[in-house]
Amino acid sequence: MALYAQPPTSYSDPTTAPIEHRFNPYSDNGGSILAIAGKDFSVIAGDTRQSEGYNIQTRYARKVWQLTDKVVLATNGFSADGNNFVKRVKQRLEWYEHAHHKPMGLKSIARMIQTLLYGKRFFPYYVYNILGGIEEDGSGAVYSFDPVGSYEREACRAAGAAQSLIQPFLDNQVYFKNQQPEPGAAPFVAGNLPLSTILSLVVDSFTSATERHIEVGDGMEIYVVMNKGRTTDDLIGPGILSEGMHVEELGALGEGGGERTFLVTSPLKRD
């Protein structure tokens, strides 16, 4: 018995040519974030520009959020996913505090974020997260995440449009890569830099990135989370902040207060 097949479709005919259907719900809205951990403090920063390609959508879009008195979260990538993810994290933290009558610790928040991201791995949040704050032992810590939940604790991390510009600079200045101490001097140790030095590194990172990258600019927000009882002389002392920078202390989120959190704002290039 003979088998007869349909004749091949003529792809030269536009009415019968295959049509590709593609749905892409994601967008990259630019901007950059970074965090650096100190001995008893953490610094988390981000710029305020939101863009899509060469189109600037707004010159003020938050990328850094205070979660508790000890913890700050920075998000970067698709802004709609980032805003929705921050809402989910804050909701989980509120449930935890009602159930246990205390705020969740930094290490536990990092684990919770990992679980939330991994739970959406088949349709992930297009968001790169950096978590910074104070651990239970009073030390500064930074946790970085990829969109599906893989994370690690680090001394510093940058993410976003200017990551390729900022991260090598931080590797050299914070991790002391490709640096050699003077003969007889103490070896370099990551995480022991003073706050004033780290603030200078953050400002230099965003200033240089703004000069080279169109998706970074307009303004900068720096959150400084300090261990309770720590002096603030190296933050608000004379000569620490450059001209145009403004610093304010944020109120405690929980009852009785906790670690002290400061917000430092500064303008960036607007081109």
Rank of each mutant, 00 (worst) to 15 (best):
Q167I: 08
Q173I: 05
N172V: 07
I33C: 05
L165N: 09
K63A: 08
S150R: 14
N24K: 11
I198K: 02
S12H: 12
G119M: 02
N227Q: 15
G229Y: 15
D218N: 04
G160A: 06
P8H: 12
P124L: 08
V216F: 02
D171N: 15
R270D: 07
I109L: 11
L67Y: 07
F78P: 09
L235M: 13
Y26L: 07
E211Y: 07
G46A: 01
V216H: 01
M1P: 13
V142L: 07
T15M: 10
V148L: 13
E152W: 09
S150T: 15
E243H: 07
K70H: 14
G82W: 10
L3H: 14
P18K: 12
V127R: 00
R62N: 11
G77K: 12
Y128P: 06
V43E: 00
A35F: 04
D69C: 13
A185H: 11
K70W: 09
C156Y: 06
T207A: 01
F123W: 07
N29D: 05
G133C: 01
D271N: 10
V127Y: 03
P183K: 03
A5I: 15
L201A: 04
P183V: 07
S27N: 09
P7A: 14
R270N: 02
N227S: 12
A209N: 04
S32K: 01
P194I: 01
E52V: 15
T16H: 01
T58A: 12
S139I: 10
R92I: 11
Y143R: 08
I236A: 14
V86K: 10
G257M: 01
L93Y: 10
Y151F: 12
V174R: 10
E52R: 15
V216C: 02
G257K: 04
H213Q: 08
K107L: 13
Y125I: 05
L195V: 06
P7G: 13
G257A: 03
S10C: 09
E136K: 06
R230K: 15
V174H: 13
F169N: 12
